[in-house]
Structures are given as C-alpha cells and as structure tokens.
Nucleic acid binder design. Structure first.
Length: 1025
RNA sequence: GCGCCCGUAGCUCAACGGCAGAGCAGCCGGUCGAUAACCGGCCGAUGCAGGUUCGAGUCCUGACGAGCGCACCA
C-alpha cells in the first residue's frame, strides 16, 4: 500500500500561490480595511456582512485558505443551505446507520461505529491469532514476498535447551522479533532462524543425577542419547513458550548445536584454524573445577568473595655472590594459596623496585624496601641494613622450605608494591603469570594436583592430600620449621565455577588451545569496525580481547562435540594435518558427532599417514570442545550454511553478559578463519530485575506478588502485546525492572492506544479509501504533518534500536496530538457534516491515513493488536500487517511558517483552557463549546497568526465562538503561554443546536427543524429528513 | 584497585549551552455522541559543592550515591 496519495506538487503550487498573494498584499493600501477589522466578528453569527463582502474579505485576508474547497467555505459563510443534493453525494445514510426520525436528531448524527472490540482479551485472542499465522504460513509468505530483496540477517544466539523460558530470555527473543519485523517492514528480506544450544554441562549433570552411580561407568553413547532426549524435550517446551510471545520465525526448522550439520560446521571451523596454524596443544595452567573435573574457559568463571589464609613465609637464601646473600638471610613471600607452595619453583621480584636487607626479631630478611615495615609489622621492628635494585637479585637461590630443592629468584614486570612483600611466590603450574615467567626462565611447568584435586607424589610429604583443604597442614608445616612469619585471614574475590559455584583452582594440564596473540590486533580492528549498541559495548569487548590469553577449547566431558584428536601410540604426538582430520568432519556430517564413541581410531582414520616417529597406529582423544567454541562456530554452521542467511550477519542481539561469552567466542573464530567480524552490529540488553533491583530469580516483588515463572504464563496473565509494549518502552541497555505495578501501568498505555485505534476505526465505518478527499483543512494538514514527522522519527529511532524513545514518540502522538486535540477537533465534522461532504471526507481521509500508518508503526511491537487493527482498516491491503511496508510520510504541504503559526495557536489554546476552566469551576458552563471567547493582541505577528485562520479558531479551540481584537478588551487576562495575547471567556448567549450541540445564533430559523442550527438544517435537508 | 555509565516531579522518560517539558499516578472538575470510554485544570523536579559562560539540567572539577564492567592481590 502506498502511504502517500496527496497531490503533493499541486499542493505545493497552491501554497506558493498563496504566499505570492500575501507578498503582493503588503504593498496594497489596506488602511480602511484594517480599521474595519478592529473587532472582527467571526463565524458563526456574522450576519452583518453581505455575502459578497464576506467573500472579498475572506480572500483578501486568508489566501492560505485556498486549500479548502471554495464551495464549502462559501456555504459556511453565507449561512445558506447548500445546493440541492448533488448527484455525486452518497446515499443519505451509509449502510448501518439508522434513518432519521423527525425529532430524534441523534440518529442523524454519524457516531463512531466499529466491531473492533474495546476489550482486548489478549490472553484469549493472541493464541488464536498465532494459530492462524501458523496455519496460513505467514512466515513463509513473508519470505516469498521479500524474495530477492536486500537481506537483513539477525542471527539468533541460541538459548540453552534447559528449563522454561524465563522472562529475561523472553525479553531477548521479543527484542529480536521487533528488530526483524521492523526491517521486514522496511522492505528487507529479514529471515529469523531460531537456534538452541544443546550441549554442555548443565544437561550432562542432570543426566548424571538421574543415572546416579551408573553414570561414571556408563557407555558414552547411552549418556549422550539421554542428554539428547533431555535437550529435545526442552526445545519443544521453549519453542511453544517463545511462540506464545508472538515471536515469528522458522520455528519448524531451527538450528540445533547437536545436529550433525552443526557439529560438522564446528569441525570446519576448528580444522580451518588448524590449517592456519592457530591450534596448539600445550601444558599450561588453566581454570579447573575439581568437582566437575574439567577445564573451564574464562567465560565459565565467575568471581565471588571468599576468606583465605594469607601467610607470610621466609625462604632461606643460599649464600652466593649477590647482594644480601653473603649473610644468612631469607627472602620473604606472601600468598593466599598455601596449597600452591609444593609447586613453588621461583620467587619473582620487580627489576626496577628497591629491595632491602633488614634486621627484624633477630633475623635477616630480604623484601621490597617500601613494604618491609608493613609486611613485618607483626614480627617486630625493622632495621634496614642494606639496599639493592630488584634487577641485582636475579639469580639468587633459596631453599624450598619443605621440598628438597633450590629455586631461583627471577624478575617479572607484573610484580607490584601494593600488597605483600614485593617478592612473589611463583608456581608455573598454578598461575598464568607464573607460567609465563616459568617459560622465560625455563622452569618446569609443575602441577602436582590431579584432576580431582588430590596431590600426587610430586607434592612430597603432602601426596594424597586434597586441595585446598590441605592449606592448614601446609601452614602448620611452615610454622613447625620456623618459616612462617605471620598468618591471617583475608577476604578477597576468588574465581568460582559458574556451573557448580565452587572455588576453582589453576592447574597446568595438556589442553588444546586457540592461539589468539597473533590475531589480537586484527580482532581489535574488527571490533572497531562493528557497530556497538550501546556504544560502551565496544570498550568492554575491547578490554576483554586485549586481556584474553590463548583460548583453552578442550573439556573433559561427554556431552559435546568430540575433538578430533588422534595420538600416536608410540610417541604420543597428535595428528595436526587438517586434510586427514576432515574425514572425521564428514563422518560427523553424516552420522553426528556421537560416531566418535562408536568407531575406533583406525575405523575413523582409514589409512592415515604415519607419524613422524614412523608409527601409524593412533589412539583417540577423550576431550570435547568448549561449548563456547561450539556456539561461537555458529557463523560457520548456520549463518554461512543456511540458504536463507548471509554472512556476515547484520546483527547479533543478546544480554550484556555475552560480551564475555558468545560475542567474543563468535568474533574470534570468525576473525581468525574469515578475516571479519561475524556481525555488523552488536546490540546488548540488561537483565530483568525486580523493583528492588535484585535479579528476578526469586520471582517475587515486595508486595509478595509472585510473577509468573515462564513466558507462557506471562502471556496468559497480561497478554503478549502488553509484555512486548513493556519491553519496547523500557531502556533495555540498563537493568530492566519488572513488577506487577509496572505491568499495570503499561496495560493502561495499551488500553489508551487500543481505544484510540477503536475510535479511529469507528470514524471510518463508511469510508472508502478510493474516495479520499484532496481538499483538506489546514488542521488536517497539521495532523498529517505531525504524522509524517512521527513516521520519520520512529523509523530513525527503530533503526538505532531505540525502541523506548520510539514508543514514547508514538505515545505522545496518540495521547497529545490525537486524543487530546485532533480527534476532538474533527468530531464536529465526522458526526454532523453530511456523510459525503468534502469536510467530513477530508477528516476521514486523514483519520484513515493515521490509522493505516499507526497500525504499521506499532506492528513490530504490538504484533497481535496491529494485525487486528489492520483487519479493520478499510480498503485493499496486504493480508497481514506484517507483510505491509513501513509507511511513507504523507505530503502535508506544511511549512515552517505554518508550524510557527500553529505553535502560537497552541499557546493561546493553553491560556484559553485556563480561563475556561474558571467558568467551569464557577458552574457557569459545562463543556468548553458553551463558551465564547475574546482574544486581544497588539502584536501584529500574533494577530496575523490568529486572523489568518479566524474562521477555524472556534473549531481549533473547541469553543462556540472566537472574537479577535486588535488592542485591548476590558476584562481580558494576559496569557501565560502567550503573553502577547489577552483572553476573555464567557458563556455564549446563543441557544444550543439540538443536533450538533453547538451554540449558534442561527438556531431556530427553520420551522421544519426549530431546534437546529442553519448548518444542520441544511444537512438534514440534504439527507431528506 | 582501575575503568565506564547514571543521578531531572511519587513513577517512567524529555529538553542543538538559550523560558525545565510529556505520559502515568494523585487531587479537583467537566462530559454523558469514544462510555468497563473521553476531556480539562491543579499538584509537583534538575541529589551536593565549586568552576567556565551574557546564560549550565547540559561543559569542567571535586566529593556523595546507584548501577555496570574489568582485574585480582600471587
């Protein structure tokens, strides 16, 4: 449907002509006329002028009015009945309206009439509409309608296939749906392929719980089958719940990370990385959960405060050539993880820091000068004996306090002088920086802790003990030998497993890694090229990528995509030839990744080339991929593979936690294998919280009211459109508060919109869009002008993902422009003018234009209600509002000058309302149309603004009559909004017309209709009443 | 600890450096031809202390408060 139908060029020409007339008038001698206009009485009731005179004055003063049809204007001015019924006019009463009864004028008034229900009954009606969309294949219809159009791809971040759809998950899907629907309306082919993240620990743990002791010894194939069934069950549950929110997409063909094609895509990505030399297998400390017995990625770690023993320990220095080591001294370290001491292989000092040999409690210690007093405060007074630079200490040796070995003092830039002693206990197997230092000094990457957290024999006297429970024993041992200088408890934040929430450890093991370092700059450049909404997302992801070490992608679990790792039986070396490994990829594509557990290494490899050591027999690895690598491969498995989609995606839209999660784990593989970011724009939203700002997990607000548990229950309680309107109205970049109160508030907004729609539709009961009126009144053009501005503004805001402001704009238009003003102002025309008169059809034309545009403007958000409205909009149109195109701003011919005039009118209107309110308070009048007002101003600009549309002022201000004066009027009050204009309001002396309820001087002139005004008499005559 | 963002009416949000505005809620009233609707009026706000400027909600500084992120104390 074309939103613009007005003869724009013609309208503009008319405006030009009008302006030309105004310009030419300036030199015209108007003195006499001006004097006559000192007190210009304006319709209705200007009986003291001959028609010809009135006509002259009208054209001389209000050339702009040429927009309104001449015959109608003259009819109005001359107070005479219109010509007998024109053959062009429609039948007296449109179908559905009662024929008039002589004395009952109500039946001759064209009141709003529509079947669009006032009550939404969303919980009941929405599911019916969703069913209809499903059955009619709306999604496919949209695809077909947009075939060949430019693509807009929003790639779905897959929710985890576990549990119900929490309101926060629902919010995410609704935001995506709004984006997709909006871009579809803009004309793009915007497919939406939803996905699910199926692999991973939560499901595996659930299955392990169900299986009990049998789990540990169970056949992996059996476990995986149970996991798959579990995931499949919740995919169905969640799909139903997402659909209940009105989210439209390819629900019958979602992507699943456990499907063979997806799994094959993960290997494609991995093997590409391998070919590019980005994959390595290394012994390196990584986060390790001793409960889940698996490696963890950065993104799987969360921090929480715990109390740890903080100990100050002295390591005896071995005499040597360095400063301080001629004497019997000890170097002092500080640690909060005593259990890492068995793996201590060095002490690190800062090369530029100042260190001192001090005497304290009769012993000699080496530590940072600046920290000596503080660190040894509990030991005794400190006396500095000698000083040295950190760099001079390099190579000193010390005896481990309980392991039989000597270790070196080393240098490290990361040593700080804020805490501890400036001498850092270094265990290359238990810390990232320690590891790097260890590599530099060729230290062993020693990890004496097993997967379950138990020391092996390399921990010496502590072998067989469990970490970190062993801490007190280590402390006791140090104390017993006099190495412990001090012990206290400190509370500090410590990494925890985000699945089981227990403290984790750093532990060096052999793992698969993706090497990030070489590609970091490229990744950061891609970050800069991406649009981040809100903008600070860029800062976050940048700092994240800058600081992220290489990525450990192997996990020691079952429910995932097995890493295609084959180790030489003889030398243990892994096959790193991607060409060989692609056989496995093809197997996954055909059979699913579960095939890994059903075939032997040789069955999968066929005749593989021999290892460098000469042997050709291999054993399989047991690791699976980090699920983050899996979901991060979706650009490969889905966006690049799905026929509807296109790489790179236009938009990813997820919760802000995904900066460290999916955004990052998607960006890196994509940049490393494809050279570009997988998304052009990245939008993030906050979390749903209750009114107290707490995360909504408890589902209770402060009044004890329990919010629903899943998305479908929300729909049943409030209706999806109310939920969607709520989401569209909040600033989703921040935390999003939810409570019953907020839903009640937003439901009020919904009702207001709905009622306005109902009224608009009611005004169009007899309207045929084929017979639109082109001769619009100025107020109509004002309304179109406002609508056009709204369309432009909302489109821009939606493009910027600023739904909240778009919603506010729409609300302001509906409430302020329409409900409080325009719809009131056009009532007279809609209700009382002859059915097919130009004036009435002009109003209907604008109302039609508004409702047609508004249905589309709101369709991305109120997808059910807009559809319902759409079905009531008269005329030929698309089957569904979701197939329709975004409206074009209608040509209103409105100029800056007109805008300025109307601003003045509204200022006066405000002042007037206050004066009228006084009459109302005094019970002098009821409604404002009973008032007659005098407006007085000495200011030419204000006078002109009013005088130029004098004829319409009564209608604009909703009063019976407006009298405009130059100069002063006794009793008039200076306006507050328009100080240059004084206003005076009084009760109109005229009788009230029994039909149109206007107070008119000409009521009672017709013997046939003694209670009617002249205009109504004319209309009644036309109607044959 | 470092960084980012925010602080406007009871609530949700506005205001190129230029008269602090809307909606909701509340109160008062109107209307009875949008009626389980509709309209009007009133009420009421720039958290604090400085600075720049003719002029600051807006720019700068500081502390305060809220939120978020990063890091992690070896």
């Amino acid at each position: 449907m074309d939103g613009s139908f007005f003869p724009h060029p013609a309208a503009r020409m008319a405006t030009e002509a009008a302006r030309a007339m105004v310009r030419s008038m300036k030199s015209f001698p108007l003195k006499g006329l001006r004097q006559q206009r000192q007190s210009t009485r304006i319709a209705p009731g200007a009986q003291d002028r001959s028609p010809a005179r009135a006509e002259f004055e009208f054209f001389a003063r209000f050339p702009v009015f040429s927009f309104r049809r001449l015959d109608e204007r003259l009819t109005c001015l001359r107070r005479r009945p219109p010509p007998s019924r024109s053959p062009l006019l429609a039948p007296a009463f449109p179908a559905g309206y009662n024929s008039p009864h002589p004395m009952d004028y109500k039946t001759t008034v064209l009141l709003p009439k529509t079947d669009f229900p006032m009550r939404a009954e969303l919980p009941k009606r929405e599911p019916e509409m969703q069913k209809k969309w499903d059955e009619s294949g709306l999604y496919s219809k949209i695809r077909a309608a947009r075939k060949g159009a430019r693509k807009y791809v929003l790639h779905d971040g897959p929710p985890y296939a576990n549990g119900n759809v929490h309101i926060g998950t629902g919010l995410n899907k609704i935001l995506k749906d709004i984006v997709v629907k909006f871009h579809t309306m803009l004309g793009a082919d915007a497919p939406y392929v939803p996905g699910w993240d199926c692999h991973g620990l939560p499901i595996e743990n659930k299955v392990a719980e169900e299986m009990g002791a049998a789990f540990r010894s169970a056949d992996p194939t059996l476990v995986r089958a149970k996991c798959e069934a579990y995931a499949a069950k919740f995919i169905d549950v969640q799909r139903k719940q997402f659909k209940s929110l009105g989210v439209l997409g390819d629900w019958e063909r979602p992507y699943l990370t456990m499907s063979p094609s997806y799994e094959a895509g993960v290997l494609d990505c991995f093997l590409d990385l391998m070919e590019r030399g980005k994959i390595s297998r290394k012994l390196r400390p990584i986060h390790w959960c001793v409960r889940d017995e698996t490696a963890l990625a950065e993104a799987e770690v969360e921090y929480a405060d715990i109390a740890s023993p903080a100990i100050t320990v002295a390591f005896d220095l071995v005499p040597g050539p360095h400063p301080f080591s001629k004497e019997k001294a000890a170097i002092v370290i500080w640690t909060t993880t005593p259990w890492t001491l068995p793996a201590n292989l060095a002490v690190a000092v800062h090369p530029q820091a100042d260190y001192a040999l001090v005497e304290c409690a009769g012993r000699k210690f080496v530590l940072a000068e600046a920290l000596a007093e503080k660190a040894l405060a509990k030991v005794g007074p400190v006396k500095v004996l000698a000083k040295a630079r950190g760099s001079e200490l390099e190579g000193m040796e010390y005896e481990h306090p309980f392991m039989k070995r000597r270790s070196p003092v080393v240098l490290a830039e990361y040593v700080t002088l804020t805490d501890g002693t400036g001498c850092v206990h270094t265990a290359p197997g238990h810390g990232h920086e320690d590891y790097q230092t260890g590599r530099r000094y060729n230290l062993e990457i020693l990890n004496p802790v097993g997967p379950n957290g138990v020391y092996d024999e390399r921990a010496g006297m502590f072998a067989g003990k469990r970490v970190p429970a062993v801490d007190p024993e280590v402390v006791a041992q140090l104390k017993g030998t006099g190495h412990l200088l001090h012990e206290e408890k400190v509370s500090h934040s410590y990494p925890h497993c985000w699945r089981c929430h227990r403290p984790i450890i750093f532990r060096a093991t052999e793992q698969w890694f993706i090497e990030i370092d070489d590609s970091r700059d490229k990744a950061l450049e891609q970050v800069r090229r991406t649009r981040w909404v809100p903008a600070w997302g860029e800062t976050r992801i940048t700092s994240m990528i800058q600081s992220r070490p290489d990525w450990c992608v192997s996990r020691q679990r079952l429910w995932g995509v097995p890493i295609p790792a084959f180790f030489c039986e003889k030398c243990g070396k892994a096959i790193t030839d991607a060409k060989v490994l692609r056989r496995v990829r093809d197997l996954y594509a055909r059979e699913g990744a579960g095939i890994w557990y059903r075939l032997s290494a040789s069955e999968m490899l066929g005749t593989a080339p021999a290892c460098a050591c000469g042997h050709a027999a291999y054993r399989k690895g047991n690791d699976i991929f980090d699920v983050w690598f899996e979901s991060g491969s979706s650009h490969r498995s889905v966006v690049m593979a799905h026929p509807d989609l296109q790489f790179p995606a236009d938009c990813y839209l997820e919760g802000t936690d995904q900066h460290r999660g999916w955004f990052q784990t998607s960006l890196l593989p994509s940049v490393l294998t494809q050279g570009v970011s997988p998304f052009k724009a990245c939008v993030t939203h906050g979390f749903v919280v209750d009114d107290e700002g707490e995360k909504l997990s408890k589902s209770k607000d402060n009044k004890g009211y329990t919010l629903p548990k899943n998305a479908e229950d929300f729909q049943k309680l409030f209706g999806a459109d109310v939920i969607r309107l709520w989401i569209a109205s909040v600033d989703f970049t921040d935390d999003i508060p939810v409570s019953k109160k907020r839903f009640d508030e937003i439901a009020e907004v919904y009702k207001k919109w709905r009622n306005t729609f109902r009224y608009l539709l009611g005004a169009l009961a007899d309207f045929d869009p084929a017979r639109r009126e082109t001769a619009l009144w100025e107020i109509d053009r004002w309304a179109l002008h406002r609508l056009g501005a709204l369309i432009v503004r909302v489109e821009q805001l939606m493009n910027d993902f600023d739904f909240a402001h778009a919603t506010h704009e729409i609300n302001a238009f509906i409430v302020t422009d329409l409900s409080a003003f325009y719809l009131d102002a056009v009532k007279d025309r809609l209700y009382t003018f002859a059915p097919a008169s130009s004036g009435r059809r002009a109003a209907q034309t604008v109302v039609f234009e508004i409702v047609s545009a508004l249905a589309r403007l709101t369709a991305p958000v109120l997808c059910h209600t807009a559809e319902e409205v759409w079905s009531f909009v008269p005329g030929k149109k698309e089957d569904s509002v979701h197939l329709a195109r975004w409206p074009q701003p209608p040509a209103s011919g409105f100029t800056k000058e007109l805008e300025a005039d109307w601003d003045r009118l509204f200022s006066v209107s405000h002042d007037l309302a206050r004066e009228i309110e006084k009459l109302r308070a005094a019970k002098t009048i009821g409604k404002s149309t009973e008032a007659v007002v005098d407006l007085a101003t000495e200011d030419a600009a204000w006078h002109d603004a009013l005088a130029r549309r004098a004829e319409d002022l009564a209608g604009i201000f909703l009063v019976s009559e407006v009298r405009l004066h130059r100069g002063q009027v006794p009793g008039a009050v200076k306006g507050a909004d328009a100080p240059l204009v004084s206003v005076l309001a009084a009760k109109s002396p005229h009788p009230k017309c029994g039909r149109c309820w206007n107070l008119r001087a000409d009521v009672g002139r017709s013997p046939r209709h003694p209670s009617c005004c002249a205009r109504c008499v004319a209309v009644l005559a036309e109607l044959g009443a």
